[in-house]
Nucleic acid binder design. Structure first.
Lengths: 233, 233, 233, 233
DNA sequence: CATGAATGAGTGTTCATTCAT
DNA sequence: TATGAATGAACACTCATTCAT
């Protein structure tokens, strides 16, 4: 995982220390000395690798998001159904945050609300991840797996929002200990809101062999195509 | 809204200034001088009303959450259907954050991830609000409006999580300008995931029709009753 | 003791509060609020009576020293022997500090080392007191009660210095609880150093007579073994 | 005297500056900036060496007292008579305060009345010094050099008290310029109060044996009429 | 006369950052 | 490359003091 050059190892060592310290104390309450102590280097050494405390913070995500992105993309290729892709994404998020609690804390408690972070290159990866989810949703809609009237942006917001909410709960309250256990039920819940009512109906009808009492009524309760504000990119 | 005594007015004046400044600069980057300048009082005066910068921050929510809670509760009484209650809650949240952007920023970007805030009395109100939502969900399940296999905690997480996600987006990216416009589509989306499926309905009908391969006991496609971890209180 | 006018009573009330507070916390660590709280008046009221915190401090001695001075002078008149005058002065000092511990603390710990206090009128009284002692010593020398070769200034320094040293010990260490018990032994000790030696006396006799080691008269005035309070470690 | 390591030299430099500034302005009226300016370092540098202003103050005595103690002890070994030991101690005290006026001011005006200082390690040295004096007195009593009925604690109080009184006079009033000139007369005075009347008498008799040119005019072994510095008003 | 309310002026302390070695 | 040493720049907080009521 860490690069092999000695210099790169030092950098990793500092980054891991920073991640740990920032996760525990928050960005402002953590001092460079805290980090250097944890990393077992001097304060000045940190400045050999990072130009400022802030840059150190923004360097923590590093390639992590991108790597996650790539791994997820690789897996998704093998999942023909978009429902399963959604399911996979949720699972992956939870698995990642479960196994990287410090990273989770830095990301969710510090970076997510940092205006400057939006301009950092690392944020591009976050955006790409986000775009991937959007694509999966749009694709699902196009393929008819998901309801036509879905606002993909809203769907994405509900997926990411719920995940984030649960991750933050875990960080701050310590519960649930294993997010991963929530991934199936959560996927079920969210997907229920996404799949077509009739599509499902048809499926049942097929199973039911000729039972079509409710036939033509497409009972989608809300006709409004939920266009909403598509600009909420 | 503001208390009438002169002293209380000063306090309100300072709180409003603090809300504005903290919303724009964040807690750590804002100085007491910034706040006192905005409030048109001296630095020292702030300390007449609040014992520390942190106490000033934690005083910003004040009675706001409680008031929202009470108003929502008052309205919910008139909505017999829990679907509408959910819809109303979402709408109210968005309306509130739309009309109180500074409060939104302080709440979502500063307080929500502050560990100490969890111990402040104001956080109790947040929790009660949260409990109200949970109750509405549980009630809906009990009444049969929502699917029996829902995990109410998970549903609540998806409601609050999505709202928060969208509010933060608005704060940081400025889009969408009006969250309120998202409330109907979002309610639709979330509620879709909560109400019993037509498919299930059909399925039940089928059962009545004499074809009963898998019987009444297993009416849901997903067998796992999505109990998830109920401990994520 | 306190003047009768209402205003004068207020002043006394504040002074007593200040004395108590300054004694306990020291001048700098005590705040005007501490004093006003103790005196049960408002901060501002203190400024009605004293122009500044420092003036308040310098007003604490008030007429106390002068009164002591006058009382001592009155008594000394009745003591024809200067040894007894010295004895009386020491006793009086200890009695006063024993019965006015807060005054003792303010005087010994705060005022005594305050350069500005030297210019205050109240310091005049201290000086007069000091001069009185000097006079008693000089008079004793002139009368032949004390050794001719004494440096009266040095003698005074040893009297006052020892008293101060013991008072400060009591204030800081709490021991001895009663200074007054030390007054006799201390007077014995100091007076021993002041009165003409037997040896000298005898020597003079020898010169006159040529014989006689020292005669029968062992004039050591105090036989008391000056056990005093051994606990004032 | 100063430690050799560069860091120790900086520390010494700061301590000397602090001693000078505190001596002139007092602890509370002196600012860290005053000290840092005098020491020609930055404010922050002071905090590299001392954790607080108060710790800086308490560090001023350092090893000084202990060193004095050891040097005095070394000398006392060569003085068989305890009278001379007392004499030596007084002389040493005066010599030290004469040559270290800033140290004297810090010790006598600031530390001596500081309750917290009593808990500092440096105060242990002061106590040991004090115990040394006590031992000399007790030994003198045991050896019969001093009167059996002396209270050693009281004697010590009179020795230290007188010294302190005179040192403070010098600091505050500037007089006498040279304390050392007072050491002989003071020692004479104090010792007079300590030695046995008869023992001394015998001694005089021996001296007198036949040589009586100067008879009555020069009755004291010490010729200096203890005029001392009469200006120490 | 008494005071609640307001503040100016000040200060100890922190810490990210630099740089000579 | 690594760091010990030094510091500039800030800032939260305190408190004696004022003054309108």
């Amino acid at each position: 995982m860490a690069s092999s050059s000695k210099s790169e190892m030092r950098k990793e060592q500092i980054l891991r220390a920073a991640e740990k310290i920032f996760a525990r104390k928050g960005f402002h309450d953590a001092t460079i000395s805290d980090v250097s102590r944890e990393a077992k280097v001097s304060d000045a050494t940190i400045y050999e690798y990072f130009s400022s405390k802030e840059e150190l913070l923004f360097s923590i995500p590093g390639k992590t998001t991108r790597k996650q992105l790539e791994e997820i993309e690789a897996i998704l290729e093998f999942l023909p159904r978009n429902v399963d892709k959604i399911r996979c994404i949720i699972k992956r998020y939870f698995w990642f945050y479960d196994s990287h609690p410090d990273h989770a804390a830095v990301t969710m408690l510090i970076l997510k609300q940092n205006r400057k972070f939006l301009e950092m290159p690392a944020y591009q990866d976050v955006q790409e991840m986000s775009r991937l989810i959007l694509r999966v949703i749009e694709e699902g809609i196009a393929k008819g797996e998901f309801r036509k009237d879905l606002d993909p942006y809203l769907v994405r917001a509900s997926i990411l929002g719920t995940i984030e909410h649960l991750v933050i709960r875990k960080i701050l309250l310590g519960k649930p200990e294993r997010l991963i256990d929530l991934s199936e039920p959560l996927a079920d819940l969210l997907i229920q809101g996404m799949i077509p009512r009739d599509g499902e109906k048809v499926y049942h009808i097929r199973l039911a062999l000729g039972s079509d009492e409710h036939g033509a009524e497409k009972p989608t309760p809300r006709k409004t195509p939920a266009k909403s504000d598509r600009s909420n990119r």
